[in-house]
Design a protein around this nucleic acid. Structure first.
Lengths: 139, 139
DNA sequence: CATTTAATTGAGATTTAGTCTCAGTTTAAA
DNA sequence: TTTAAACTGAGACTAAATCTCAATTAAATG
C-alpha cells in the first residue's frame, strides 16, 4: 500500500498527513499513464472534490521527493508526471576505476529517445546506454 | 557563411529576408554557448537594437526549422537554444532488418545524461547509446 | 520605376502554467 | 486540551510565450 509509504515519508520529513494530500495522492494512484497537474485538478473538481489547485501544485513536488511519482516529460507548456514503475528496463553507469555498476532509469530519457526516434522515423525496439566514467567514491 | 543558408532557407519557404531577421540571426551567431530568447532580447536592446521581443520569438522557430540552431534544454521556466555544432560525438540507431546505421546527435539527450549523472554523483567521461529497431524503409 | 500584395513588424494586450500571499483552519505532539 | 507550526483555499501575481492589428516593407510583377 503506497499510501503508507507516503504517510511515512511525510512524517519523516515533518510534514503533515492531511485529507487533501491523501485525496490528491489516491487520485493519482488511480491514473493509468501520465497526467499533468491542471488536468488532475479538473478531474478532481469534476468528481466533486474541494481540493484547490494550489494544494495540487504543492503536493506534487512532495510526491516526487518521496519517490512516489516522477516527472516524465517537459513540453513547451506542461510538465507531466506518472506513478513510479516497478522493476523494468534500466541503463548503466560504469565506473572505470572500481568497476561499480550503477543501474538507473530515467523516464525522461526514455521519452526523449522516443521523440528522437520519431523524428528519424525509426521504430525502436530496445536500446542500451552505457555511461563510462568515475563514480562518487572514486571521485 | 551561415547567413547565406538562412537566406536560402527563407526564400525556399517563401519567407522574407528582413533586416530584423538578419539582425537577430547574426546576433545569435555571435553567442558562444546557449541562450534564451528573452536574454537575447535584452542583449540586443542594450546594444541599441530596435527589434521587438515578438520578432525574436517569431524568428527563433524559423532558425530551428532551418537547422541553424537547436533547442538544447527545457527547464521549468525557459527554453534554451544554441548554434548547431559541427561534427562531434553522436549516437546510433541500428536497423535490425537492413543493418542501416543512423547517426544522430541530440544536445538535449546529452544534457539530460549530464543531469542524471550529477544526481548519482557520477563523473561521465564518455558514453555509448545504441537504439535497436526498424528504420523507416523497413517499416 | 511604380504597383501590388502578402508577409512582417512593433507595441502592448493576452494567455497560461505555475507560484505566492495571507487570514483562517487543521494536524499532531505535548 | 492546548499550542505551535504546518496547511489550506481563493484569488492575486509572475513571467515566458503568443496573439492582435494597424502600419510597414520585401519582392514579385507590370
Amino acid at each position: 500500500m503506497p499510501n503508507k509509504r507516503f504517510k511515512k515519508f511525510l512524517s519523516v520529513k515533518g510534514f503533515k498527513f492531511t485529507k487533501e494530500r491523501e485525496e490528491i495522492f489516491s487520485e493519482i494512484m488511480l491514473i493509468e499513464g501520465h497526467f499533468d497537474p491542471d488536468e488532475l485538478f479538473i478531474t478532481m473538481k469534476t468528481k466533486g472534490s474541494k481540493v484547490s489547485r494550489a494544494s495540487i501544485y504543492r503536493t506534487i513536488p512532495l510526491l516526487v521527493d518521496g519517490g512516489l511519482i516522477e516527472k516524465v516529460e517537459m513540453t513547451d507548456r506542461h510538465a507531466h508526471y506518472e506513478k513510479k514503475p516497478g522493476k523494468r528496463h534500466h541503463d548503466h553507469m560504469i565506473c572505470s576505476i572500481c568497476g561499480k555498476v550503477i543501474e538507473f532509469y530515467s523516464p525522461e530519457l526514455e521519452k526523449l529517445q522516443e521523440s528522437i526516434c520519431r523524428k528519424e522515423k525509426f521504430k525502436a525496439l530496445r536500446h542500451s546506454l552505457e555511461i563510462m566514467g568515475r563514480c562518487g567514491d572514486c571521485g
